[in-house]
């Protein structure tokens, strides 16, 4: 695992350093312009999630996976290292981006809100969901998987709009509020700690499902 981390850091060090220095500035500034607490995690989480895929895309571009997978490493190890590396990168981006968001002069949301448990938890949730959906697509389609994801999002958006105009917004809102409502109910009944635990467990389960699906796809991949 460490060997694979090391490999990515050495082979992509310029990229990691460049992105690590510049990208949080961009996210920090962009995030500071957003004043809606519901919009911030939805948008920023996607920007954090892009980072590992751009890094993996470099290896894809050079077709270097054939070489890496010829080394003494199994596909499970390789994918596990990618998941862990991705989470490390995304969390670092999240921390740096949020910090800058809070300190940029004229930020629309106060630091207390940006670092509030609700914001942190919802950001983590969106990161986990985006990443969990993107990874199997990336494994299956390479960089084109990102486009597939965006197209699926667009199509879903269009379908929801059609659905909304024919059935009404009530059902959609109910569907979207299903998880937050369940968390709120847990919090009301048992307190904040079990609610946080429930959310994190759900995210872990979702990520595990994504890993299992990605691994199944990866094992079928041929070079």
């Amino acid at each position: 695992m460490i060997k694979l981390f090391r490999k990515d850091f050495i082979l992509h060090k310029k990229f990691v350093l460049g992105v690590g220095l510049v990208y949080p500035l961009y996210i920090g500034y962009m995030g500071s312009r957003i004043g809606r607490t519901t919009l911030l995690p939805v948008l920023c989480a996607f920007l954090y999630v892009i980072v590992p895929f751009v890094l993996f895309g470099r290896e894809d571009k050079f077709k270097a996976e054939t070489f890496t997978l010829s080394l003494p490493v199994t596909r499970r190890e390789y994918l596990r290292a990618r998941f862990l590396l991705s989470w490390i990168l995304m969390l670092l981006m999240f921390a740096a981006g949020s910090l800058l968001m809070a300190v940029v002069p004229g930020a629309k949301l106060p630091a207390a809100t940006v670092f509030g448990p609700r914001m942190v938890l919802s950001s983590l949730a969106f990161i986990a969901v985006y990443f969990g959906l993107l990874m199997p697509l990336f494994v299956r389609f390479g960089q084109a998987g990102l486009l597939v994801f965006l197209v699926v999002l667009q199509v879903t958006g269009v379908l929801l709009m059609v659905f909304r105009s024919s059935v009404g917004i009530g059902l959609i809102k109910t569907l979207f509020r299903l998880v937050p409502n369940a968390v709120a109910e847990i919090q009301a009944a048992f307190g904040p700690a079990p609610a946080v635990f429930a959310v994190l467990s759900l995210l872990a389960l979702f990520s595990y499902g994504s890993f299992s699906l990605s691994l199944a796809l990866f094992r079928r991949k041929e070079y």
Partner: peptide, 16 residues
């Protein structure tokens, strides 16, 4: 032979 192209040989060796 396909490897990440924009890195020096010594770095590739240190990875392998």
């Amino acid at each position: 032979p396909a490897l990440v192209e924009d890195v020096p040989l010594r770095d590739i060796a240190s990875v392998v």
